[in-house]
């Protein structure tokens, strides 16, 4: 046979028929040039196959989405907490006749804002939460 050329890589990759394989092997026994070529492509093939398999970088694979409540639901929670805190503070003040319990006004304002946002008709009742 003539020099097998492309068939040398196909031999390495197990892509030849039995008859082709036999012919190539027979040729290799008598052709030093093709034996050199065979060894050269074998070494290159092995080198590429031995390249390290890189790990996937983070963030490429899908991950289960964390459970998150809708913004509206969170706003309602804040609004409810705010309303409850205000009612509790006022109630305490009325029951004891003393000054209202200290409140974090910033937090209250946030709660109130949330309540107004989600319930536009919400009316405020002024209470004495001035300086102690």
């Amino acid at each position: 046979m003539t020099h097998p050329g492309d068939l040398l890589s196909a031999l390495l990759d197990g892509e030849l028929t039995a008859a082709e394989r036999r012919d190539v092997h027979t040729h290799l026994e008598s052709c030093a040039r093709c034996r050199d070529e065979y060894e050269a492509v074998r070494a290159t093939r092995d080198a590429v196959r031995e390249l390290p398999l890189l790990d996937l970088p983070p963030g490429l694979l899908p991950t289960p989405a964390p459970a998150r409540r809708p913004v509206l639901a969170r706003a309602w929670t804040w609004a409810a907490a705010g309303a409850a805190a205000a009612a509790l503070a006022i109630g305490i003040g009325l029951a004891t006749g003393s000054a209202p319990a200290p409140m974090d006004l910033d937090t209250f304002a946030e709660h109130h804002t949330a309540r107004v946002l989600v319930q536009p008709g919400f009316q405020t009742v002024r209470a004495d939460v001035g300086a102690p």
Binding site: L7, L8, S9, A10, D13, A40, T44, R45
Partner: peptide, 18 residues
């Protein structure tokens, strides 16, 4: 046949470079 040729020639070209 084209695949076979590309693989073999590609390996041979790499070998020359290496």
């Amino acid at each position: 046949g084209t695949v076979r040729s590309r693989i073999h020639r590609g390996r041979a070209m790499m070998r020359e470079r290496l």
